[in-house]
Computed example of a mutant assay.
Amino acid sequence: MFDKLQALADRYEKLSELLCDPDVGNDPKRLREYSKEQSDLQEAYEAYTEYKSVVEQHEAAREMLNEKLDDEMRDLVKMELDELTDRKQELEDRLQILMLPKDPNDDKNVIVEIRGAAGGDEAALFAADLYRMYTKYADTQGWRTEVLDSNVNDLGGFKEIVFMISGKGAFSKLKYESGAHRVQRIPVTESGGRIHTSTSTVVVMPEAEEVEIEINDNDIRVDTFCSSGAGGQSVNTTKSAVRVTHVPTGIVATCQDGKSQNSNKDKALQVLRARIYEKQLQEEQAKYAGERKSKVGTGDRSERIRTYNFPQSRVTDHRIGLTLHRLESVLNGDMDEIIGSLTIAAQTEGLGEDRGDQAV
């Protein structure tokens, strides 16, 4: 591992030299490529640089213990040595995680689909809560959001909403959100004050570029229809809404939130590419892991990755056993602790698998 880290450090420093080269500065393509490569290496480089410094300090402290010292100084050196030993181990663990193979989709934008599942109108209202939670979280990250398609019920909930979140690292942070989300609360439609359980499903897909998923015009069927819901005078009068069907796979994408038929078709194709790409990823993962751990499932009440319990102001992620008693702040976009814990759990699992492979 340390040979790889040294090679990484050498490359990072070489990139620093290249980025100072006037020829590179005058070449936007090379400048962009080198800057991105260095940015990808930076976290591991800084951790490795600190690790080497801690190792040097650790060796110096050990040598000092062999010298003639008074009791007070010896105690101070031992204390420093203990702290350096702990820090050295922390950095070694962190470096092992940083050297794990990176998901090639991590830096991509994402397309998110949220659907009301079990629970009727209440499930649709909860879908709207989830949409608001993700957009609020996106705001805290400096990401942009854009609705691609939506289907609103009479109470303002979403039977379905599809939207894009654009920003660096969006997929890396949101990819663990796919699954069934369960809510426990008294619905606004409940007159008897009883707590109901409903679910909404979330799918998070990396945006697929045209070069990754090429769609042949002969393989798609495009249908137009009148938009429904809020949208101005053109709603229900002009056929601006678009439905695109990928005939070979049967995958369908619709969009009616754009201002024109052309913009809706472009957005529908974006969603279609993402869905085809996601299908390919699932098929590849199935070869090695059987059934996807993050599958959406049917949306049945018994299938869930997370529960939002309003009476107890509690959020529980069942995959990692994390419970937080601050539901309101989470629904307002304060998701860092949940997402951070899920990321660490996934990295730790990946580290265990990597060690298992090495043992074999």
Rank of each mutant, 00 (worst) to 15 (best):
L5F: 11
D10V: 05
L18S: 11
L19M: 14
D21C: 04
P22W: 13
V24N: 11
R32Y: 14
E33V: 14
K36T: 09
Y51G: 10
Y51I: 08
E56W: 07
E63Q: 13
L69E: 07
M73V: 10
E80W: 05
E90A: 15
L91R: 08
M99R: 07
P101S: 01
D121T: 09
F126N: 07
A127D: 09
L130M: 10
Y131K: 02
Y131S: 04
K136E: 13
T140D: 09
D149S: 12
G156V: 10
K168I: 08
F171S: 01
K173L: 05
K175H: 08
K175V: 00
Y176L: 00
Y176G: 00
E190C: 04
E190D: 10
G192A: 13
G193D: 06
R194T: 01
I195W: 08
I195E: 08
T201M: 03
E212H: 07
F225N: 07
C226L: 08
S227K: 05
G231L: 03
K239S: 15
S240T: 15
V242E: 06
V242S: 07
T245R: 12
T254R: 08
T254V: 04
S260K: 07
N264K: 09
V271S: 06
I276N: 08
L281N: 12
S294W: 05
R304T: 03
S313G: 11
L322H: 05
N332K: 14
M335A: 07
D336S: 11
I338W: 01
I338L: 12
T343D: 12
Q347G: 01
Q347N: 13
Q347D: 14
D354W: 12
Q358C: 02
